[in-house]
Write a protein that binds this DNA or RNA. Structure first.
Length: 482
RNA sequence: CGGGGCGUGGCGCAGCCUGGUAGCGCACCUGCUUUGGGAGCAGGGGGUCCCGGGUUCAAAUCCCGGCGCCCCGACCA
């Protein structure tokens, strides 16, 4: 690895915290790889081979007839996801890359607040859930094993993590603690909907904090707010942190992260300096309905500010649980005076799939998806025009190899096919940079550049010159993107 | 869980009312031509018509019963 090449790696996602040597990105979809580790092949600097002629990206001109939500239609059309049943979805390679970008960002920021990643089972003994009084939740999948033992498929992991902490944490010296994992959740939803937005099975990052007292919980809660704010900001989404109902989790307080978009199932009430879940907002003493009451939709004021109400997707939520789970599961510790005390807990969730869907919703245009660069499946969508063995194709092959060797994540459309088809597919998939090499490029000496957001033509890049210059130019372009 | 709709090749649809053994567009395969915004010609492959039962000489089509999927609402740790 040369110094020059390693410089080029900075084209990857940049975190706000540059002090850590983290370069996590979807370049490494390997689950569980430490965020701080090297994410490239140990022997080389190149991105994986991603030639469209040999990549499973089943794009469709027409959306499934029953799709309504923008993200549902586009994610299917762009070849990111495919359905298996109601609320059951497969992530295809390009889609999974996007999902794993979100995962990588979350992992970095949680590691950054000292959280420790682990993994707990989905299949669990029903007894745990009986103890916390949640066994009768309708959404909880219940089953029996071959011996007739009662089992559940976990819809969240408070029971599991508290069970382990109860076993292993003995002393105030073991606290505080933040544990997390990325794990599949199973929920028997009454109505799955809108593609990946509401499913019966989905990956969630859930973290849990454990403290000696309420003050400790408040601290860990604040740490999570910081991490979540950074995570959401880094995804490139428009989002709000809002006060929320405590809901069925019970507890001492909760906030939600909401991404406004048309397909949202929730509503956020917004005024300058104010954002809240609508249910919470309507209980606010200073919020009043204005007009004759028959207006549709109703209008509200907060003081002298108009309150706007927007549909939004809940992309994350955080709860102060208190001792709701530690008490029934016996998660106690001995304090300095030797007294047994219940552990104070917090619970913090993010659904990567919803972040992906929200990004599609927020930035799509009539041509397709337009990823924020932090989430794009590839940095560059390179289009070769002209048949194999033509000079323009060879020139494009060269560009591909240069980018790949330089660590740029590039999807290379080397298929036989019409230009229009290739352009349309590129805009559907929505990678931030589209580079095109064709006969015109040979004449002009330039690689054509389109910025996906806004479909703007940018200044061409020199074709066939110094590879390092090309990599630097791409890097510079990349940094200028939203 | 209430209301509505839909199940025919990978996707989008027609055929069903009036029963006769399945068709169109896209996609896919082969060949030739074409190549800067979803090409043309020719040839070709692929369907338990959601499932089960019934009626009938004959069922995608009619009848009965299931199942699945989508949308609206309720619900949503």
């Amino acid at each position: 690895m040369t110094a020059v090449l390693s410089k080029q790696r900075s084209i990857e996602i940049e975190g706000p915290d540059r002090s850590r040597e983290t370069r996590a990105s979807g370049a490494s979809p390997r689950f569980g790889q430490p965020a701080s580790g090297r994410l490239r092949h140990p022997l080389g600097s190149a991105s994986p081979m991603t030639r469209l002629s040999n990549y499973l990206l089943p794009t469709e001109k027409q959306a499934p007839a029953d799709a309504e939500a923008i993200s549902h239609k586009l994610m299917v059309r762009a070849g990111l996801i495919r359905q298996m049943g109601a609320g059951m979805w497969t992530w295809l390679p390009a889609g999974w890359r996007v999902h794993q970008r979100v995962v990588a960002i979350i992992r970095q920021e949680l590691d950054g607040i000292g959280a420790q990643e682990m993994l707990m089972p989905v299949l669990q003994p029903a007894e745990l859930w009986r103890k916390t009084g949640r066994l009768d939740i309708d959404e909880l999948f219940k089953l029996q094993d071959r011996k007739g033992s009662e089992m559940v498929l976990a819809m969240t992991h408070e029971e599991a993590v508290t069970f382990h902490v109860a076993q292993t944490v003995r002393s105030y010296r073991d606290l505080p603690l933040i544990l997390y994992h990325f794990q599949v959740k199973e929920r028997d939803e009454p109505r799955p909907r809108a593609g990946v937005l509401r499913t019966r099975e989905f990956v969630m990052k859930d973290s849990y904090s454990f403290d000696r007292d309420r003050a400790g919980l408040e601290e860990n809660y604040a740490l999570h707010i910081g991490a979540y704010d950074r995570i959401m900001a880094r995804t490139g989404l428009r989002f709000y942190r809002v006060e929320s109902d405590v809901g069925m989790m019970g507890g001492l307080g909760a906030d939600e992260y909401m991404a406004p978009c048309p397909a949202g199932e929730d509503q956020v009430a917004l005024a300058p300096g104010y954002a809240a879940n609508v249910e919470v907002a309507l209980r606010h003493p200073d919020i009043r309905e204005v007009g004759d009451g028959d207006a549709h939709p109703p209008r509200y004021m907060l003081g002298d500010q108009v309150l706007t109400i927007e549909p939004a997707i809940e992309i994350g939520n955080i709860f102060k649980l208190g001792t709701r789970y530690s008490e029934p599961l016996g998660a106690n510790f001995l304090d300095e005076a030797g007294n047994e005390q219940p552990i104070w807990m917090g619970s913090y969730g993010i659904g990567p799939a919803r972040i992906v869907a929200a990004a599609v919703e927020q930035f799509a245009d009539e041509y397709g998806i337009s990823w924020p660069r932090a989430l794009a499946p590839f940095a560059v969508h390179l289009i070769a025009l002209g048949k194999p063995d033509t000079p323009e194709r060879e020139a494009c092959d060269g560009v591909y190899e240069t980018l790949r060797a330089g660590g740029v994540e590039v999807l290379y459309d080397d298929r036989e096919g019409q230009p229009g088809e290739k352009f349309a597919d590129a805009e559907l998939l929505g990678c931030p940079l589209r580079l095109t090499v064709g006969r015109k490029s040979l004449e002009s000496g330039e690689i054509e550049v389109q910025l996906r957001r806004g479909r703007q033509q940018a200044a061409g890049l020199a074709l066939g010159g110094d590879p390092e210059a090309l990599l630097r130019a791409v890097d510079e372009l990349w940094r200028s993107l939203p």
